[in-house]
Amino acid sequence: MKFNDTFINTDERFTIGIEAVSGKYYVSIHVSNRLVDYDEYYEISKESYELFLKDPSAALIFVERCKARQEDESLMFKPGADRGVAT
């Protein structure tokens, strides 16, 4: 998979983008576990993608839900046993 970020929020540590191979839209958040830092990718609709680009505060609401693990059904990759914590 090739993730192409189209919006980066360095203060809140999230990105919005399009995965090049599948064309799926996503929001990613930065997480850390005891061994490694990595990103979790959450699939979003085209409508959400367009809204989040126009209104990053709307994206922040979604990001907070992701950090609280309330959007796990949207994860593009299921986490392993040592799942990280949002940073």
Rank of each mutant, 00 (worst) to 15 (best):
M1Q: 11
K2I: 13
K2L: 12
K2Q: 14
K2C: 07
K2T: 10
K2W: 09
F3Q: 02
N4S: 13
D5H: 06
T6Q: 15
T6A: 12
F7G: 00
I8L: 08
I8H: 09
N9E: 15
T10D: 08
T10Q: 14
D11S: 13
E12L: 14
R13V: 15
F14E: 00
T15C: 12
I16M: 05
G17Q: 09
G17P: 03
G17C: 08
G17W: 11
I18S: 04
I18P: 00
I18M: 09
A20N: 11
V21Q: 13
Y25L: 05
Y25K: 10
Y25R: 08
Y25V: 06
Y26P: 00
Y26C: 04
Y26F: 10
V27C: 00
S28K: 04
S28H: 03
I29R: 02
I29D: 00
S32P: 01
N33Q: 10
R34F: 12
L35R: 13
L35S: 12
L35I: 12
V36G: 01
V36I: 11
D37C: 12
Y38R: 04
Y38M: 08
D39I: 11
Y41R: 01
Y41I: 02
Y41K: 02
Y42L: 00
E43S: 07
E43F: 14
E43T: 06
I44M: 09
I44K: 06
I44C: 07
I44V: 10
S45Y: 14
K46P: 02
K46F: 13
E47R: 15
S48A: 07
S48E: 15
Y49N: 05
Y49K: 06
E50V: 07
L51D: 10
F52D: 03
L53M: 07
L53H: 06
L53K: 10
K54F: 01
D55W: 04
D55V: 05
D55L: 04
P56F: 06
P56G: 05
P56V: 11
S57F: 14
S57H: 09
S57L: 12
A58H: 11
A58N: 05
A59D: 01
A59Y: 05
A59F: 07
A59R: 01
L60R: 08
L60Y: 13
L60V: 11
F62M: 04
V63E: 03
V63C: 11
E64S: 06
R65N: 11
R65E: 14
K67W: 13
K67P: 03
K67V: 08
A68F: 08
A68W: 11
R69M: 09
R69A: 13
R69K: 13
Q70G: 06
E71V: 14
E71G: 06
E71Q: 14
E73Q: 08
S74W: 15
S74K: 15
S74Y: 15
L75K: 02
L75V: 07
L75N: 01
L75S: 02
K78I: 12
K78L: 07
P79K: 01
P79S: 03
G80P: 01
A81G: 04
A81V: 09
D82S: 11
D82P: 01
D82H: 11
V85R: 10
V85N: 07
V85F: 08
A86W: 02
A86K: 03
T87D: 10
